[in-house]
Design a protein around this nucleic acid. Sequence first.
DNA 1: TTGAAAGCGGTACCAA
DNA 2: TTGGTACCGCTTTCAA
Lengths: 341, 341
Amino acid sequence: MTARMKDIALELGLSVVTVSKALRAHPDIGEATRRRVLERVAELGYQPNLMARSLVTGQTWTVGLIVPDLLHPFFAGIAKAISNDIRAHGYGLLISSSDEEPDAERQQIRNLLARQVDVIVLASTQTTVDGLREIERRGTPCILLDRRFAGAEAHFVGNDDEAVGALATAHLIAQGCRRIAHLRGPEVSTAAGRLSGYRQALAQQGLAAPELVMDLGPSGDHRGAEAGYAATRRLLALSPRPDGLFCYNDPSALGAMRAVLEAGLRVPDDIAIIGCGNLSYADFLRIPLSSIDQGAEAIGRRVAQLATSLAGTRNAAAPPHVDLVPPRLVARASTIRFPKG
Amino acid sequence: MTARMKDIALELGLSVVTVSKALRAHPDIGEATRRRVLERVAELGYQPNLMARSLVTGQTWTVGLIVPDLLHPFFAGIAKAISNDIRAHGYGLLISSSDEEPDAERQQIRNLLARQVDVIVLASTQTTVDGLREIERRGTPCILLDRRFAGAEAHFVGNDDEAVGALATAHLIAQGCRRIAHLRGPEVSTAAGRLSGYRQALAQQGLAAPELVMDLGPSGDHRGAEAGYAATRRLLALSPRPDGLFCYNDPSALGAMRAVLEAGLRVPDDIAIIGCGNLSYADFLRIPLSSIDQGAEAIGRRVAQLATSLAGTRNAAAPPHVDLVPPRLVARASTIRFPKG
DNA sequence: TTGAAAGCGGTACCAA
DNA sequence: TTGGTACCGCTTTCAA
């Protein structure tokens, strides 16, 4: 059926070993022999069976990636960047979407391990670090992505979420907001970090107002807009009402904006709104949405770099590499109260 | 290091073969023996090395997917659906993004073949069918996704693009448009199909106007908004100007909308605009954008089903399975000229 | 019902 | 520089 090394070796009157070495540019093969081999290989379009190679070398040249939602632009962007960058080093990417379900995630981890991936990159939906036991026991290097675990000594690449919260909040303060509310996200490290950054920025200016933190509930990004809408209606019922709003993510910010406009208030004059994620079409919205760009591509690139450097390693107790990609403010009409000029 | 079958067999005083059979619920293993094996396996958290298994069985339980852009919501949605559905059958998904570059795509095809994937799912960027030769020669089943090749006898899952074009155009006609323009996409089958559907719908009503077809250029989705903006400015210079506009995709429709509004015209009253793709936040735009929903999830599910059914097959000359997912009109403010009631 | 032997398609080691 | 042999971890075949 498909040609194997044995066939090529037979044709050329060589041994399998020689062909194998020639293919991998092994130094101790004669120039003439190598030429002959390479030529025949090219003619046949022969490619070595990577499964067989992996079985003996123990390396599969495959990175496993698990994200909560592949359709989410943040994770899709990361996946794309990882895929592109690791391919240049010969690695492939095995992807799965956990749908925010811890059990599904654990099962997928097991599957990736059974497939002998060289590294696992995980944006975890778990609440505890237990799900990582299996990976650790196996000695497979693991990179935590976007979401961290308190006290877990693992490699991490993601945003500095405190910086995200502080950046957004400081921007609102600079725009003259004094009662700044926050729609906080679900129980993952990103939400906690952003909340903490928000609090710090407020505290620094003596503007803290604990009653202005509203919980979006467990909806995450799925029904983010609805959750943002509902939470914002609750906020608008307060008196005095907030004049600035930092939302956990962009979908919730869109919901918030709808609630504010429906209430007959103006954005940003009455309430300035900023989200997080910098969704692609933010410029084309009714009111262009200010947002914090998380730098998905940069995160992906750094994951790729770390992954390829870790790939050979096994159980090597390298000190955890923590890579915090700085967030970037993208100010648009939804927060700009004092147009320049 | 990691436990192997041999270790378990030794511990239990059995042979490797017995353990292997017990694990796969082979009928000729005694109940007691199977219990013992399964118990020990559970204790150890043992998982068979899938590489080794694949090497002998010839099946890798892996589907390879190549898309032009993983960040594009259409492809991300498809990838997510495929991943979820095939996982239920024990398959994994190896993904790569070709970045619309035919050479990169060909290289990725070779890589997937070297990795012995059971099926290849390909949204091709190639203009000719030559790039598929390699796959065919190998006997690996291949499913074309979204983009077809004229005269290629391959499995295909995607939209009925003529229906897409006809649906959008008929909608504009129903809204009272009489001079309907089209921003046509790059040289792939989807653009050709949509153009053809557009023409048919117009011809049926005697509304054909060849001068109203503008080319977006090779930009595809990347710089779609800019291309849509530029093409629409050219359209607006015509006289009489168009009163309806069907755009190849949503980004170009957003660019078009900007151009129309900047020219001081109203949407939809002066010009109704419809796109294709039904991007997530279409409801939150300045003017909510009408669009054709392509049913990415449905496409993904059907690909998954076909892929798993094809996975065992090799070179089986099954008649090509062509699965056209019907598009769905999502009418919003950008085209609705006669509000009901 | 169980297991010894052979082999999947390669690579590593060492002798020729 | 070349190649024989063993082996990676598992499944298949067939005899016990």
